[in-house]
Write a protein that binds this DNA or RNA. Structure first.
Length: 963
DNA sequence: TAAGACCGCATTTTT
DNA sequence: TGCGGTCTTA
């Protein structure tokens, strides 16, 4: 498409180069066009050189695109702009540190230096490993923080916190906190109280309790608090009470936090030191040191400032990036461009308030930075606001739909903070508007999507705009299917492959968790040692039943055909050749297979890895779920499948928004994080330790449980995600759901039609899955003979159904169709891939038997019941065994929870007594030991189990309680 | 209207 | 583990 002439608003943006600007640039409004023209206009002036203008972007690809577009429309060539500061924040920070950063750490009191050899650590897995290593040493050196180690389940939680603090501009110094960092850690009581009061208003004219009180109806459920916590009824007041006492706000906010702050401070500053000594910087530390340097070193700042600063995709910037941008501005010529409705990277610390509260933040940040020195030129900034309103991408109907989407509640009870008033209305200038917006629904959602696509292709009802501006019937390549999750995308690809359907995946793939990778791993294991775990997978895949495989593994006699294939593989010299043969055998072709081959080949080439090392590499990849980028091959007429995040910035004539099913992202929360930071409440600890007693124990923090319920629920980002998806569409939007459409789909003005999927298989002449018809005699005859594989759920569904229908299933009451099937499946797959698992039913025990014996620790979730005679009556204690350690002659249950103790987990003695008896029952032939296991530091302490008499007493009292 | 029991479900990805 | 939603009971 040729570049249009700018409209009036674009012209204003292009020509108004002096002073601060906030540009609201909605989707399809020609933002890149205007920004690159603006840049060109600035640098084309005789007194301005490219090095006077910073154009900061969020991603490398955006930077590259900007550069290319500028080259097209300015007097500068690509070569002249090669070193121009058109880059990401991170690479610019790197640049600054390279040039002036040598002594940057000294401003925090650190003696270490940043040198030319300091590396940027890009791989987050490697960083996590380094941090674990660091944290281990830190624990040894700092016993004074022992109380906090006990509250952590993984060091990664601390690293997350450090990165979050860094993204906010909260840094440590060797003897305290940088600038006003500490005040942020303390939080702001007034701000908190406001939220508390808002959540604590009775509703329905005082007839209904406040939201906060209602939320706290689960107070203490599945929790163990210390004795000083108020009881649920004390906290909430008796029945009929409508709100919490005002004093609760104060009670929960003010809490001893010095120890916590000291702990976080020490880890933070020591990790900075560790990284510098190891000569590396993480992405967040890059920004941290650049910020400190620009703040403290006037000469460096003067050298680093620009006459013009333009920030693209401003809605994706973090707080510290906003401040960095200010420090880099030598003048007030500061222009930010973005669209708050497309801010979907909060997990990346993007802070949507940077753009929503731009004016206020600009003033506040500038004032903060100028508090003790004259650092930034913004005196009383009065930014001009420019709104790009003309949409060049979509029809009016699509724009209308997107504007509905941004104000649609994400769930029942979700209140939308923003109204349509906050949305800059866009107008379309599409040539025609024949937009179809529809919803389809069928249980087999993948098939439904594919048949819909088939219906659309070549159909004039879904005509799209051709090159000449005239309508033409759509092709596969015009259609994109968006999903929230990679998993869904992968499932869709699998189904599409069955029909030979032209689809291409675009984005990150958990490469080593794909079927081709699993099969390749199996064959490598076979080549290495004829490993049972390899053969089991291969034979499963080839269609053998458990008994047949059992027989083969026991006797070590494998079917002829795969044995020959193995020998054939042995002849091959390179791992790459092996991989290619294996993938060929199963008919794997296409993007994923290509990337797998490429990845493995490059590992092998670069490190001359042995086969064993390659196996470990894949195993590690499976464990960590590391992803590799797969790009859709351009030029193919194929449907693009991608996550919404990947699709940002792209456009397609037709968008299918898939997986509009019940179940949303949980609102952003600390997850399993124990120590967290939230703006109004500062640094908080979610778990606390008991300080007294022989058995230090970690409890939940009741204060935190109240506080978190006062904070607003964050569904906004989901709405924005939907907005991004819809606004990718030029002409048509199709929503697709499986069983239950979600609230979004229900609330939008979209008719959802129940359709009958009917995908017509295409034959594009590519190899399909190879059938391998060979048989082996099994001793007891096959359980079943349907083709199945460890990767194929349907087999286990069948197995489950058969079992349910069969005569001998009474012994396993929890056996239920799909549920059962997927459990066996998960088990078999996990086991085959090397996870430790303990069988919980006959099927699983069989799998283990046939996949060879296993010793060591196993996670199980086995419900157990222990019948005991109490006062002549037979009662049952029930619970869940969680973690077992088995060796040849000894067995030990490490973690057991009774149903009662699931609610109050401190009742160690009761637990131990119960599992002591359970173990005897389970493993009559092995010596049974009991031990106490603290997750925090891995130590085990023996405890005397209760006698059966004491146990009876416990049961009696438990019964009395429940009466 | 409130409280309790129970069930099902647990991300996205860039530097 | 930990929560939100829904269904059941008070």
């Amino acid at each position: 498409m040729s570049e249009p002439t700018p409209n009036d608003v674009q012209r204003e943006l292009i020509e108004s180069t002096e002073g601060p600007y906030l540009v609201d640039a909605g989707p399809g409004t020609g933002k890149t066009f205007a920004v690159t023209r603006r840049y060109g206009r600035i640098v084309d002036r005789p007194d301005v050189e490219p090095e006077d203008v910073l154009l900061a972007t969020f991603t490398r690809s955006a930077a590259t695109e900007m550069k290319e577009r500028i080259v097209d429309h300015s007097g500068y060539g690509l070569r002249e702009l090669a070193d121009a500061p058109i880059r990401t924040f991170h690479s610019h920070c790197h640049e600054i540190l390279q040039e002036h950063g040598y002594a940057a750490p000294t401003h925090l009191g650190l003696d270490e230096r940043i040198t030319g050899s300091t590396r940027i650590l890009e791989d987050e897995l490697i960083e996590a490993e380094r941090f674990r290593e660091f944290f281990g040493g830190f624990r040894d050196d700092h016993p004074e923080h022992a109380d906090f180690y006990r509250a952590l389940s993984a060091p990664g939680e601390v690293l997350d916190l450090i990165e979050e603090l860094a993204s906010k501009g909260i840094f440590p110094t060797t003897d305290g906190w940088y600038r006003d960092g500490e005040s942020h850690l303390d939080g702001d009581f007034e701000a908190f109280q406001e939220r508390f009061d808002a959540a604590n208003q009775p509703r329905n004219d005082g007839r209904k309790q406040s939201e906060l009180r209602e939320d706290l109806s689960g107070f203490g459920r599945d929790k163990a608090y210390r004795a000083d916590a108020p009881s649920k009824s004390t906290l909430r007041g008796g029945r009929g009470t409508k709100r919490l006492d005002d004093d609760v706000a104060r009670q929960v906010f003010y809490e001893e936090r010095d120890g916590l702050k000291a702990f976080v401070h020490d880890v933070y500053v020591e990790y900075l030191r560790f990284a510098l000594r190891r000569n590396y910087l993480s992405f967040s530390f890059l920004q941290l040191f650049a910020f400190v340097l620009l703040c403290e070193d006037e000469r460096a700042r003067e050298a680093a400032t620009f006459e013009y600063v333009i920030v693209d995709e401003f809605q994706d910037t973090s707080e510290v990036q906003f401040k960095l941008a200010l420090l880099l501005s030598g003048t007030e010529n500061f222009c930010v461009v973005g669209d708050w409705k497309q801010s979907i990277y909060s997990f990346q610390y993007a802070d949507v308030d940077n753009i929503l509260e731009f004016e206020a933040r600009l003033e506040r940040f500038a004032a903060d930075l100028n508090a003790d020195a004259d650092r930034v030129p913004f005196d009383s900034p009065d930014p001009t606001r420019i709104e790009l309103r003309e949409n060049y991408r979509s029809t009016e109907s699509v724009i209308d739909l997107s504007e509905r989407a941004i104000v649609t509640p994400a769930s029942s009870g979700d209140t939308v903070g923003t109204g349509l008033d906050d949305v800059v209305a866009l107008s379309s200038n599409a040539a025609f508007d024949n937009t179809v917006v529809e919803g389809i629904r069928h249980e087999d959602e993948h098939e439904a999507v594919l048949s819909k696509v088939q219906e659309i292709v070549g159909n004039d009802d879904y005509a799209v705009e051709g090159e000449d501006g005239e309508p033409r019937p759509p092709e596969y390549g015009d259609i994109a299917v968006f999903t929230r999750t990679r998993d869904y995308g992968r499932e869709l690809l699998d189904v599409a492959a069955e029909y030979d359907f032209p689809v291409a995946y675009d984005g990150g793939v958990e490469l080593f968790r794909t079927d081709p990778a699993k099969l390749l791993l199996a064959w490598l294991r076979i080549l290495e040692s004829d490993a049972d775990r390899g053969w089991a997978v291969v034979l499963e895949r080839a269609g053998y039943a458990f008994d047949e495989i059992d027989h083969a593994l026991e006797t070590g006699t494998y079917p002829t055909e795969p044995t020959e294939f193995r020998d054939e593989l042995r002849e091959l010299e390179s791992v790459g050749a092996v991989a290619r043969r294996v993938l060929d055998r199963y008919g794997y072709a296409g993007d994923v297979a290509d990337v797998l081959l490429h990845t493995l080949q490059s590992v092998h080439d670069s490190t001359t890895a042995t086969r064993g090392e390659l196996i470990r590499h894949i195993e590690r990849g499976v464990e960590t779920g590391s992803t590799v980028d797969v790009r859709a091959t351009a030029g193919d007429d194929a449907v693009t499948v991608q996550t919404i995040h990947t699709a940002k910035g792209l456009e397609y004539p037709i968008v299918v928004m898939a997986n509009m099913n019940e179940g949303r992202f949980p609102p952003r929360s600390g997850g399993s994080s124990v120590i967290g930071y939230r703006d109004p409440v500062g640094l908080r600890q979610r778990k606390i330790y008991s300080e007294e007693g022989a058995h230090p124990h970690v409890y939940d923090n009741w204060r935190h449980d109240v506080i978190r319920r006062c904070l607003p629920r964050e569904y906004d980002e989901e709405r924005r995600l939907l907005y991004v998806a819809v606004t990718r569409a030029e002409s048509h939007v199709v929503f697709a759901a499986g069983e239950d459409p979600n609230t979004f789909l229900e609330e939008l003005p979209v008719a959802v039609e129940e359709i009958e999927p009917d995908v017509e298989p295409l034959d594009r002449g590519e190899p399909g899955d190879a059938e391998l018809p060979f048989a082996v005699t099994a001793p007891d005859g096959p359980i079943g003979h349907s083709p199945h594989s460890l990767m194929d759920e349907s087999v286990f569904e069948e197995a489950g159904e058969r079992r349910e229908a069969g005569p001998d299933h009474e012994s396993e009451p929890e056996t239920r169709g799909m549920d059962f099937g997927s459990r066996v499946h998960d088990f078999a797959e996990a086991y085959a891939l090397g996870d430790d698992e303990t069988p919980s039913n006959d099927h699983e025990r069989r799998i283990v038997e046939l996949l060879d014996g296993l010793s060591g620790e196993k996670h199980v979730e086995e419900p157990v019941t222990l019948p005991i005679d109490v006062d002549g009556r037979r009662v049952t204690v029930s619970g869940i065994v969680d973690l077992v350690h088995v060796t040849a002659d000894r067995v030990e249950v490490i973690d057991y929870k009774t149903d009662a103790t699931r609610r109050a987990q401190s009742e160690y003695k009761k637990q131990l007594s119960v599992y002591y008896h359970v173990l005897d029952e389970w493993f009559p032939e092995k010596a049974v030991e009991t031990s106490l296991f603290y997750t925090s530091d891995g130590t085990r302490e023996p405890i005397e189990p209760h006698s059966i008499e004491e146990l009876r007493a416990l049961v009696r009292s438990a019964e009395a309680e429940s009466d």
